[in-house]
Computed example of a mutant assay.
Amino acid sequence: MIDEQYKKRIEQNHKDLLGVLQHYPVEPGKITLLPSRGGRSKWLIETDKGNMFLRLETINPKRMLFIAGAHWYLQQKGFPIAKLIPTRNGGLCLSGGNHIYLMTEANEGKGVQYYEREEIMKTMGFIGAFHKASVGYSPVKGSKKRTRIGKWKKLYQWKIQELESNMKLAMAADANDTFSQLFIEHADQMLKRGKEALKELDQPAFSDWTRETMESGMFCQQDFTMARMIMKDNQVFMKDLHSITIDLPARDLRILMNKVMKKLSVWDRDLAYDMLQAYDQVFPLKKEYYQVLLTDLKFPHLFCGLAHKYYLEQKKSWGDEKYLMYLRNIIAVEQSKQAFLADFDQLISRVKGGVS
């Protein structure tokens, strides 16, 4: 009886999917459900116009329209991103109530690797091209913007307050709580860096860059990860765009640089310099704007983020050993980052070739 009910549900889902596909200018053939996570479903659709991906996301339709509009804007400017397929009526996405469908061309290619220096440099140039191409975006009517610009101070303050609260939890923890024992050894140094970074947000460069970014219409990818990209024709290519936010380009740079260095378990000063140079060659930033990036790299985002997960027990599948492994990795990265932070002005002068 259970097997029969499951069969009927699969058949109904397939019929519903065919109904969705009728809204797109393609003739569908074989349909394959792909593994996915995070409240999304994704299908590979073989069509008369080539293979397509159909993605379902549970998201506010107005928010998705903001993201889809950005995707279309990049696509129209010739940016290397999978083509978004509009509906027969010209819609960028298809609303199904509290969820949304999007169709894009399916592209094949090798995944971009965090340990391949050449691919890291190409990715940094790709981020520069992404930011450059995003300039001038005007969200379509009816869409809802996501923005973090102008909210950095509040975010820093909230993370500092949470870090202080987690320090109290760590000090009150059982002596056998190895994570808390190691966490508290390094928390004072991270707290000091966080407070220094908060003060640095008062610098004129931060206000100037915030105003310039808001006026330009520029957006960030929000969580720049190589998992969203492939190598196609020996160049980096974005296979999907799940989210964007209006924010300073420094956000994308900080997130990817932290990700790369976490993979290496150490902050490689020379690699960091080469990464920034690769970005600046495509999308040059004012020298003083790099000081804002310095501030964001100084703030202990990784340390705070892991403590947040641990003390709120967000990762139910993680055991104590896994948490401890990640904490040791982050401490190694943050400690080795100190030399980079101290030499930052000199490194940026080299990036800019002595030009301010």
Rank of each mutant, 00 (worst) to 15 (best):
Q5D: 12
I10M: 12
Q12I: 12
K15H: 11
D16E: 15
E27M: 12
I31G: 07
W43A: 08
D48C: 06
K49W: 08
R55I: 12
R63V: 14
A82L: 05
I85D: 00
I85A: 05
P86S: 00
L92T: 00
G97M: 02
I100G: 06
E108C: 06
K110N: 13
V112D: 05
Q113N: 13
K122W: 03
F130T: 02
G136P: 07
W152P: 01
W152Y: 14
E162A: 04
E162M: 09
N166R: 12
M167F: 07
A170S: 10
Q181M: 11
A187Q: 12
M190F: 06
L198T: 02
P204H: 06
F206R: 07
W209H: 09
T210P: 03
G217N: 08
M218G: 08
F219K: 04
Q222E: 13
M229W: 10
N234M: 07
F237G: 00
K239S: 10
H242T: 14
L248Y: 06
P249M: 07
L256Q: 10
M257Y: 00
S265R: 14
V266T: 13
D268G: 02
L271M: 07
Y289L: 05
Y290W: 15
Y290V: 03
L294Q: 15
L302Y: 06
E313M: 06
S317H: 14
G319Q: 05
Y323G: 01
E334C: 05
Q338D: 11
Q346Y: 10
V351F: 00
V351R: 02
V355E: 14
S356Q: 12
